[in-house]
């Protein structure tokens, strides 16, 4: 938070003000909403002394863009976020400054500069992969639910939100892949890859609902975000 940041990279000639942070959340931080995660990041970056770029107006907000909101109850292994700064900072120094000032269940994996004119992360996103571990349920139950799901051609669900009242979408079309995978006891592993395009995004809890596993204890992790190359 000092005026003269020690983190300036003397070699940089162009002003790189947009940075992409790859991060992981687990355990306690799997239970926050996307708005709350935004605040956690804002405060972490402030503690790290990063010169955050704020919006104009009466209620200035830092410019932070997530690739996709994490559902409440879901951690992540490699989520992406873009952050804009007022003055350039060496990405390696940003990474170092963040270490030790983030909450215990947040880790920063990578920081790098990205071109200002690159499309928003949410526009580049095409799919997300999730690992959902389940317990207190028989593997056969899960397997047969998965088989039934994959064998159905269509699965209409009501859209979320008031303005979509009466509208439905096809969850089956959004699920690109779904299968059981190995997991340590007592878990039964489920792996899925779900569409995550603007206007066509599925969520793992909706898949669990369709599988009739909504009340099953689980640990959910988004393992990968897939961007259009």
């Amino acid at each position: 938070m000092n005026d003269e940041s020690p983190l300036q990279n003397p070699q940089s000639k162009i002003q790189n003000l947009r940075y992409r942070i790859t991060f992981a959340t687990r355990q306690t931080l799997a239970y926050v909403s996307v708005l709350e995660l935004g605040k956690i990041w804002e405060r972490s970056l402030r503690r790290a002394g990063m010169p955050l770029k704020y919006s104009q107006g009466y209620n200035p907000r830092p410019k932070l863009h997530f690739a996709a909101p994490l559902p409440v109850g879901c951690g992540s292994e490699a989520d992406l976020m873009d952050v804009w700064l007022e003055t350039p900072v060496d990405p390696a120094m940003m990474l170092a400054a963040l270490t030790g000032v983030v909450p215990q269940d947040l880790s920063v994996i990578d920081v790098h500069a990205v071109p200002e004119d690159e499309a928003a992360l949410s526009e580049q996103l095409v799919a997300a992969e999730y690992r959902v571990w389940l317990r207190d349920v028989a593997p056969e139950t899960v397997q047969s639910a998965v088989t039934n799901f994959l064998n159905s051609d269509t699965l209409a669900l009501a859209k979320r939100g008031r303005k979509y009242r009466g509208k439905t979408y096809d969850l089956r079309l959004l699920v690109e892949a779904l299968h059981l995978e190995d997991a340590p006891a007592p878990w039964i592993g489920l792996w899925m890859r779900i569409h995550a395009r603007p206007g066509a995004t599925g969520r793992p809890d909706e898949v669990l609902k369709a599988l009739n596993l909504v009340d099953t204890p689980r640990r959910c992790t988004r393992s990968r975000l897939i961007l259009a190359s």
Binding site: T28, Y31, E36, R43, S44, V102, P103, Q104, R218
Partner: peptide, 15 residues
């Protein structure tokens, strides 16, 4: 935690 509202209340982990 998947059965309750606002599960983040019950896990700690605050900075």
């Amino acid at each position: 935690l998947h059965r309750v509202q606002k599960p983040g209340r019950y896990v700690g982990g605050e900075y």
